[in-house]
Design a protein around this nucleic acid. Structure first.
Length: 589
RNA sequence: GGGCGCGUAGAACAGUCUGGAGUGUUCGCCGGCCUGUCAAGCCGGAGGUCGCGGGUUCAAAUCCCGUCGUGCCCGCCA
């Protein structure tokens, strides 16, 4: 460690071994407890907390000390008097008997307490993020992030990976998420885009013979915020040549295990559980299932073939399905039923059927009278339902039915912490999906290889891709795929996507040409480091593991970004404001 | 673009449903007392555009409309 001239010890490192020695610590006043003839100061620095004892009569400066003053204190380390040890504190057996107390820098009255116990409005925390980051929880999150990236680099270095930086001023592609744009001054009127991912550059690196590449890459997507989404975020991006899916899985499992071990001290069971996309949808109604609890979706269609109940009947007759979940013991009321029905409707259902199993085995349900004894017995049996269990049933086309139940399953069963970890691979995603306007779009990205090229040509809507997601506790960590390395296949995919060959050449010609020079088969993966650290630190939002995040409206409350810029800057860039934007600017200034 | 919630002292809240004087709690802040605390304790004090604008009313923190900010979600996120 580098020697420091200002202090001899970190506050948290003072121990019984130092008793009798003169030490100097420097840090912040966490708390002052003044008893008149004797005063206690808790001094906090990055290493921890130590108690200082001072006689205010001898140290007038102690009278002036307030919370978060930055101070330097010298004194002798002593054992605490018997009975006054603090077992909660790592340094609680000792204290520093102050000889010298020096204020390095005073602090104003604080906008909020530097304390994990108080729950402060996030806007106020962000406005004074430098104070918020002094809180032990936030300091621990910063540290966890740093250790996570260190573990990633260590692991990948051992595996022979090369860390390569790719540009962040690149060309815009209209597919996928909205690009963050940066106007060019030297070519006024033209724009760079910030990368949504280093996708094409890492594929170029495979063509370049790098073979094993990784990057801890800042990525940008100009879409609306969520608890787990910011405009900019950090991904571990990696790619390997001559790789098949198993090589990708093995590498990512190694990396994720090393991070979990670093932050949690736990071993992760590998290989991870695997589900195909279809299986995930069928059993959990979502492509990122939280595997920490059961409540799996059950297919009831076969047991209701002759049902009298119109909703079920018409669903089955129109090639739909009837599915249910056993939600187990729930506080059940009419209000709760209405609430969940509303939620089901929000997820696309036309309604929701609920049933509660009575102690005598009969069903309490608005539709009980439409069901035969046989049907009731079959439903109870296949759903493994006992007295008191709440059963929720949806009848619709397959995708809607499972998605509705998947949403309710998460609502009803998902743990509200991340104490337990459940990793999962979801494989065999559809290659394409139908867009809102009925056109075909890719479900991963257009550089993902199909499992079966002939099938892709004949029945694109049924084609399976070599794409896969990593999921942790119902959080999508990231995704990857085996890429297309054959330029002809790449051209065919563009064609199926409705990108005519002229457009494809204009936009991706440079990439298609690169593929023509002996491209090795390759594949890779990228996962969100923010999300991973969020889960491992048991946080509900990635903002808690990002030092300076933005609010839902894209504003940084600390610096005020984004801001208006001088008209001269704009004209140099060949950029103008719309009348609406100008009006807003005038109102602002 | 849409749905729902929140906005009261420096901070966290109660009060809003059922209109009646800015009414209260905890922490912080200021002053005083206090020699073993560790979320110290005791006494006293200061501190308010009830987010903002409009409306209803004799009377609005409270009811209505709008607006801004913020959070969760849907859409969106290759």
């Amino acid at each position: 460690m580098v020697q420091q001239v200002m202090r001899t010890h970190g506050a948290g490192s003072v121990s019984v071994d130092d008793v009798g020695n003169e030490v100097t610590v420097a840090g912040w006043v966490q708390k002052r407890r003044d008893h008149g003839g004797i005063a206690f100061l808790d001094i906090r620095d990055a290493s921890g907390l130590v108690q200082v004892v001072a006689d205010p009569a001898q140290h007038p400066a102690v009278d002036d000390l307030r919370m978060e003053f930055c101070v330097r204190i010298s004194g002798e380390v002593t054992n605490r008097p018997e009975g006054t040890e603090n077992t909660e504190l790592p340094t609680g057996l000792v204290e520093i008997d102050a000889r010298e107390v020096e204020v390095l820098s005073p602090a104003k009255a604080l906008p909020f307490m530097i304390d994990d116990r108080t729950d402060v409005d996030e806007l106020i925390r962000l406005r004074h993020r430098y104070l918020d980051l002094r809180r032990p929880r936030m300091a621990a999150n910063l540290k966890a992030r740093s250790r996570a990236t260190a573990a990633i680099r260590r692991t990948l270095d051992q595996e022979g990976f090369l860390e390569v930086e790719t540009p962040t001023l690149i060309n815009s592609t209209p597919e996928g998420a909205r690009d963050m744009l940066v106007p060019s001054r030297l070519r006024s009127g033209e724009f760079y885009a910030l990368p949504q991912s280093p996708q094409l550059f890492k594929q170029l690196l495979m063509i370049s013979g790098v073979e094993r590449y990784f990057q801890i890459a800042r990525c940008y997507r100009d879409e609306d915020f969520r608890a787990d989404r910011q405009l900019e975020f950090t991904q571990l991006d990696l790619e390997g040549a001559f790789w098949d899916r198993e090589a990708v899985f093995e590498t990512i499992e190694k990396v994720l295990s090393s991070v979990v071990e670093e932050l949690r001290g736990e071993r992760v069971e590998t290989p991870f559980v695997r589900l195909t996309w279809h299986e995930a949808m069928n059993r959990f109604g979502i492509d990122k299932p939280d595997m920490r609890f059961g409540m799996e979706i059950v297919d009831l269609t076969d047991y209701l073939g002759d049902t009298e109940f119109g909703v079920f009947k018409s669903a089955i007759e129109s090639a739909g399905t009837v599915r249910g979940i056993n939600a187990g013991q729930q506080d059940w009321s009419r209000a709760r039923a209405d609430e969940l029905t509303e939620q089901a409707k929000g997820l696309g259902a036309k309604g929701l059927v609920w049933m509660v199993v009575n102690d005598d085995g009969t069903l309490r349900s608005p539709i009980a009278k439409f069901l035969s004894d046989n049907e009731i017995e079959s439903i109870k049996k296949v759903m493994d339902a006992g007295p008191g269990d709440v059963l929720l049933v949806a009848a619709d086309r397959w995708k809607t039915a499972v998605e509705v139940l998947g949403g309710l399953r998460n609502e009803l069963g998902r743990p509200d912490n991340h104490d337990e970890l459940a990793f999962l691979w979801v494989t065999d995603f559809p290659l394409f999906e139908e867009a809102e306007d009925g056109s075909i779009t890719f479900s991963h990205h257009p550089f993902t290889s199909p499992v079966d090229i002939d099938e892709m040509r004949v029945r694109p809507e049924a084609a399976i891709s070599n794409a896969y997601d990593a999921v942790l506790n119902g959080v999508e960590l990231g995704s990857g795929s085996i890429r297309i390395h054959d330029p002809d296949v790449q051209r065919q995919v563009f064609e199926i996507l409705g990108i005519d060959s002229e457009t494809a050449e204009r936009r991706f010609g440079w990439f298609l040409e690169a593929l023509e020079y002996g491209t090795p088969p390759h594949g890779g993966f990228a996962f969100g480091i923010d999300r991973l650290v969020m889960v491992l630190q048991n946080e509900a939002s990635i903002r808690e593991v990002i030092p300076f995040p933005k609010t839902q409206s894209g504003v940084d409350p600390l610096t005020g970004a984004p801001t208006w810029v001088e008209a001269g800057q704009l004209s140099e860039l060949g950029v103008g404001l719309t009348p609406e934007a100008k009006a807003r600017q005038t109102a602002d200034e």
